[in-house]
Design a protein around this nucleic acid. Sequence first.
DNA 1: TAGATTGTTAATCGATTAACAATC
DNA 2: TAGATTGTTAATCGATTAACAATC
Lengths: 211, 211
Amino acid sequence: MGGTRKSEIGDRMVKRLPLYLRLLREMRDRGEVYASSAALAKILEVDPIVVRKDLAGSGIGGTPRLGFPIDPLIKGIERYVGWSDATATVLAGVGKLGSALLGHTGFRDHGLQIVAAFDPDARRVGRRVSGVPVYATDKLTEIVRRLNVRIGILTVPQAVAQSVADAMIAGGIRGIWNFTTVQLVVPAEVIIKREDLAASLAVLSHRLHVK
Amino acid sequence: MGGTRKSEIGDRMVKRLPLYLRLLREMRDRGEVYASSAALAKILEVDPIVVRKDLAGSGIGGTPRLGFPIDPLIKGIERYVGWSDATATVLAGVGKLGSALLGHTGFRDHGLQIVAAFDPDARRVGRRVSGVPVYATDKLTEIVRRLNVRIGILTVPQAVAQSVADAMIAGGIRGIWNFTTVQLVVPAEVIIKREDLAASLAVLSHRLHVK
DNA sequence: TAGATTGTTAATCGATTAACAATC
DNA sequence: TAGATTGTTAATCGATTAACAATC
């Protein structure tokens, strides 16, 4: 029932990988060479066994007494998550949230490069927002196809979310990062990742109430 | 090991509740009175059994042959997640992301009302952004205490994240919605909900690579 | 009464945690 | 050699799925 949701290694683990990556990069920048699972675990407030399991999944082995070699480990995790080289991405909907994401410098550290943005507003088209050129939305399919882009970020108003998603898919996009609350209807081979602020908020306020 | 992470009902379920809520409100607005678990399940692409389990958790029972009464169910879920009446919230860091969140109308549907924003920039202080007054950051603790606010949204630069979080907690804030990548150090009774875009992105790009 | 849907109890599945042998 | 840390195998835990009785 529902879309294709199988992936040999769990999402829970994949979600932790950016944490390791961030921390390992910091350690590398401080000149450290090895990191033990216990040290990583303590900072990230997880169990050391979790760390070892996760890192094993990344393909890089550790050395008893020393820990894991930081530099190879960083490269291993990057390769594993698919962040080795920047993936070209487009963003549709240059409103407040869209502009914020365009200005988010952290994406570069996570293998994502936004190469084009789209908006229907003539006042925005032709300009650059945080260095990214803004095109008219009706050029989306064509430009996506020409640039061979596989990931699209969707920050448009609810009303046009489905049609813009359709335009992305028509251009060859395979994964959509959906910041709207619309339940998109897409072909089975397209992967949708919803970014649901309401869900996060629910977890927070529920925990506050339970206490 | 680590903070207080116990909550008698799983986060997975709590995360699904906003989906039900959104859908049920739409159905109510269309004039519908009952919703069956099968109908909800089909739209949300989950199993009907999951829906029944989740809704049972909300405390509202269904009727065989009819389904669940929409209006009581909405109220039940709202009560359950703690969204019955708007919770006062503050936001610190009126940059791009902060402004986007201040303008996010959806929060009102989720029991959240941002009553004050904080920024150190003198050009922003004293103005209103999307109707929310902006105060100087050094007034944060005082205003939070006076307004008796329990939830804080953190959209400040990494460098000041910890100190602003400290100021929030000093004012009595019990839950922080952390949009930075900083691993905040807080007392055990304070709940931190990280909003990690990198983690979401990792899941998406990993799935694309696995396929 | 017949049929559809709820809600509960049991079975399966996956992830986390624990125990411990292997290794530098 | 002694000691610390990895990595694997087993045990526990929680969530999902399945089966089915209860109910309108």
